[in-house]
Amino acid sequence: MTSTIQAPQVARGAESPRAAGGPVQRKNPLVRARPWLLLAPALAVLAVLLLWPLVRVFLFSLQDYGLREIVSGDANWIGLANYGEIFTDPTLWTVVLPNTVGFAVLAVAGTVALGTAVAVLMASLGPVWRTVVGSAIMIAWAMPAVTGTYVWVWIFDADRGIVNETLQAIGLQDEPVNWFTNRYTFYAIVLLNVIHHGFPFVAITILAGLLGVPKEMLEAAEVDGAGSWRRFWSIIVPNLRQVFAVVIILSTIWDFKVFAQVYLMPGGAGSNREALNLGVWSYVESFGQNRYGFGSAIAVLLTVVLLGITVVYVRTMLKEEEL
């Protein structure tokens, strides 16, 4: 019962023209234009700096666009040939897509689970410890991805990394193992790296949402005898559905696009073909070879896949009026 306290408010608020339009119900043009006035600056920036370049990426993807075309400025339309080449390449189906999708699923699940757990923990701490933990996880977030990746590589280094040394010291392993040559151990390390770098964002965001959940609701539930597990699922999750939706959608987008954390790993820049993901593949196949049209086609493909996933997410996680 308590779980439905807030949701109707949101819906009601959004539908109430009086509150939405302003103090007095007037159908004057200024009021009708207000949402557009509020949106205008953001839309202007996005349209000029992201939307138009995005359209150009799409146009490139229909051309054989290489260094020569860049210099001469000529268009070289080839229709859907780039897309044809992508879909007929067995690497896409056997290596690139499984790596990208499999990794993204695990990374999103891991990041969101750990981030939420940390947020709940932080919300239950006193102000001093909350600041300590908050600052600590900020360090993980703020550390440049490049640096973080090299540190993880050192930790798992085959010859002198502490993981190998520990495993050998306790006798689980006789010889040093190079974890980077195997597809699964390679991505396990990437996963650790990405979760380590990504969960602070989730934790801070969820924490911000948690702190907005009215205390009275939680207290009332506790009085009703609901355990903490039950309180989490019946009060926090429904209240933070929008926040969770955003966090999951954004994590998915980022984890699909992961590039530096793979590219900088030993063998990750293309010499270990089993470790390619969509981002690195597009970079190696196209940008390394000056085939910008082909690279753009991969980028468009990635965008379409992500768009599909997002639409499904939005449909299942949010009710239409909540969107």
């Binding site: 820049a269 293309g270 270990n272 190696v284 940008f287 390394g288 070879q289 000056n290």
Partner: peptide, 20 residues
Amino acid sequence: GAVQAKKTTNTAIQAILSGQ
């Protein structure tokens, strides 16, 4: 340059060294 970008030779050596 494209051969280098694709790391054709590196891939071969790494595959031999790792026993693939």
